[in-house]
Design a binder for these strands. Structure first.
Lengths: 204, 204, 204, 204
DNA sequence: CATGAATGAGCGTTCATTCAT
DNA sequence: GATGAATGAACGCTCATTCAT
């Protein structure tokens, strides 16, 4: 951001802009994400956009930030305090969280992931890290708590494969509009559980 | 195509254009896939582009056609004639095929799948169908040949989830440049096998 | 118009654009009526054109509107309040009006009528109708007021033939630069009067 | 023309080109009168066009020439050998000739007159002269044969006004598709006769 | 002579960005 | 701070014309 909004009015203006920009990006896609339309929808002038954002990409970045925060919140809400539950139950809640996270503004999510250029996407390592961490925790607890002998490295790969696999399946379902289908949850839980149990056995 | 190249010179030009356009699309993405740069990279004039292609999208379509053909070929080559092998072996070859398929110009693949607008992906459904079929066959043979009682529908969902999961994991690895890592193959095989066996057990 | 000019500066810009565009259209014709030349002549950038007009045709439409208004004004000014005069006098004034109307930027007029495509002439029918009405009134009053037995239809044809004939003669003179020649007026008055009187006699 | 076609085959090629170009010009208008389409319709290559014509305008000029020849022929055919007839009869035949002349390929005529740029149109003075001559003859014979005292100049203006008027009326009718309407002929004959007789009386 | 592949200036139009008010 | 008029580089695309074959 070019300038921190000092006064309350300014903070409100920034919110209005991001709100409007979000709607434009979700509805029209990156190619029709034009500063003039954002300003028009927000009810401010183009000049005001550039008061707070150095360029168009910065607005997209703000949108992404906000969206990812919401996604993390949804993810956390579902499997909170599930540490003591049996693995089957934990995985169920975890999958619910992932599905819930992807149910937030799917149109926006798709545009953000597929269309907004790398410059704006690459700058979210904290989110990726945090997201990945959940998978690593799941993998770690499933194989008996703390990282064992040859664990760390293998567990990392496992977490990565698992997360990418689950993300892929959920994204595909989202694209088909099948996120709410119970079969999706069933099969995902099966996939994750089967994989984790197989790794458990392999370690014994 | 707007015009069939009749002379040898023009056939060469078309090749040069598609080659150059492929590089531009892979490097710059759809948003920077401009006719002027394609022409410059190809070392021809814009006019020559429009001599053979009605518009920019048609060039992308030609690129896609060529690429998807190569991908299917790589996929087929790996698990050819694996029908009689034990499941573990079959899954291993299958995963090899998928990894091989994604080793072909994955930057291009991502752009083609994520950025190029739908209109240019018109022939994609056939590819998608053919691609999906491989997964369905794998799922079907793992559960004992022909579709049993409640089989067909459930098998379809399973194939879909499995393919999306494997694709997701492979795409993520490709993005990281980890396609050749042996651990990727190991874990993917484990994932697929564990899932398929779990489904087998559930049916008994 | 795409946007109403709110500030005074922009109102001036619109005027400058229309003025410049008028000169370009009259001088170069529709085929060379290019946005870049309009902008250059107006001393503004192309962008400013599109700030106020959705496309090139809309500029032509604005030019036409302005021009036709001026033409109708010139036409009206000459034969105003000539209702009670003898026919010879009325026809004289009428011809004066027509000649005056065609003395206004006739190069522009020709281009507007002959070259600018139909879409931009959308409001033309109203003008044509108003223009024709003058001829119909002249024909009607010359044959004794209200439409007699077989009057209406025949009067319409007569008005059409008369207007097309007068317009043709005046256009040709304009093309030759002879609009101000007294002989033109004399002969036109003779033509109209002779025709109207002949029709009068035929009705008795 | 760039090159006189020496051999018979060449003359045939030129004919084919002009024929095709005429159809393209009449159907598509000047704006879509493209050399590539002409060549395609003619079944020759663009190169061949430039073998015989220096540029696009030259083709249009050839079309115009051919068309005007046909128009003059139609005009002549109608009032041939009418020298000894009474004025009413002569004018009738004359008007028939004009109407017949404008009935030839009206679409082409309109494009030729309205759209083809001046460079190609201005170069037909012989046609204009010949066309005008007919009107001058009509005017001259109506006022008693050879040019009298103050005749020459006045007769010239009269011929010019008369021709432009008749042309205007006929063009307008052509545009409306009313060329064949009997009322058109009736009123035109009346217009011409009334005018000529009025001039006769004025000279006495 | 005929071909048609190749050219490239030029078109209409868009939109991120600036800056005088 | 806020405005919105102004900018102009860049886009996709056309088509008259040339020239190697």
């Amino acid at each position: 951001m070019r300038k921190a909004p000092r006064q309350e009015r300014s903070r409100a203006t920034v919110d209005v802009i991001v709100e409007a920009a979000t709607r434009v990006l979700a509805r029209r896609g990156w190619a029709r994400f034009t500063t003039n339309e954002i300003a028009a929808v927000a009810g401010v002038s183009v000049g005001s956009l550039y008061q707070y954002f150095p360029d168009k990409l910065a607005i997209a970045e703000a949108i992404r930030q906000r969206h990812l925060d919401e996604v993390l919140a949804a993810l956390s809400a579902a499997d909170d305090e599930s540490g003591a539950l049996p693995l089957g139950e934990r995985v169920g809640r975890f999958v619910d969280g992932v599905i819930a996270a992807h149910s937030i503004d799917q149109a926006l999510h798709r545009v953000l992931v597929d269309e907004v250029p790398l410059a704006a996407r690459s700058a979210c390592p904290e989110f990726e890290a945090e997201y990945q961490r959940r998978y690593r925790v799941l993998v770690a607890t499933s194989t008996g708590g703390s990282a064992a002998s040859n664990g760390a490295d293998s567990a990392d790969t496992a977490a990565r494969v698992l997360s990418a696999a689950v993300e892929g399946a959920v994204h595909a379902a989202a694209r088909r509009g099948d996120l709410a289908t119970p079969a999706l949850r069933t099969e995902l839980v099966r996939l994750v559980l089967a994989y984790l149990r197989d790794r458990q056995q392999a370690r014994e």
